[in-house]
């Protein structure tokens, strides 16, 4: 049973990496390329690891 559990965890990890890569390579739908993140929506958040916040911060600095 322990091997099945470890297998499931490793399988999930591999699946996540694969989906991440496929997701990155999939082009955005037409007209969705310029979806903007509003700075006033994201800058209240304190999650510094959040990609959206960092992008909002970058837009704000510009």
């Amino acid at each position: 049973m322990i091997y099945l559990a470890i297998g499931v965890i490793i399988g999930l990890f591999v699946l996540m990496i694969l989906l991440y890569i496929i997701n990155r390579r999939t082009p955005l739908p037409e007209g969705c390329e310029d979806l903007k993140i509003s700075t006033d929506k994201c800058l209240h958040c304190h999650n510094d690891a959040c990609e959206m916040k960092n992008r909002a911060k970058g837009d704000d600095d510009l």
Partner: peptide, 13 residues
């Protein structure tokens, strides 16, 4: 992304 442009526009970000 693949199936619904409208849904991606509203939920994507």
């Amino acid at each position: 992304k693949k199936t619904s442009k409208g849904l991606y526009k509203s939920l994507g970000i």
